[in-house]
Amino acid sequence: MKLLYFAWLRERIGVPEEERDLPASVTTAHELIDYLSAQGSAYQAAFADRELIKVAIDQEHAALTASVVGAHEVAFFPPVTGG
């Protein structure tokens, strides 16, 4: 699965995107965050405040409770501030 990070999440994690094979136990965005948070201190710091994390699954906004099973691209980012 392709994972993308934007704004301060990207800065804290240190890469804009990566490809990862996820364990079958990861089915929701919440579980994906749990999994990534266990991948080192940078991830842990980036995902520490879950209230500030938004997710897009295959380029559509989604809830953290949404399923990521079968998704090609999952992006994590803070609330948007364009306009």
Binding site: F6, A7, A56, F77, P78, P79, V80, T81, G83
Partner: peptide, 30 residues
């Protein structure tokens, strides 16, 4: 269009100045 764009279009603003840089926080008004 502006109201929805502000909360749905995936843009993030970062301000840089003499005292450093900071990501702009989202507003509940939006």
């Amino acid at each position: 269009l502006m109201d929805w764009l502000k909360t749905k279009a995936p843009f993030w603003k970062k301000e840089t100045g003499p005292e450093g840089e900071a990501w702009v926080a989202a507003k509940s008004d939006d």
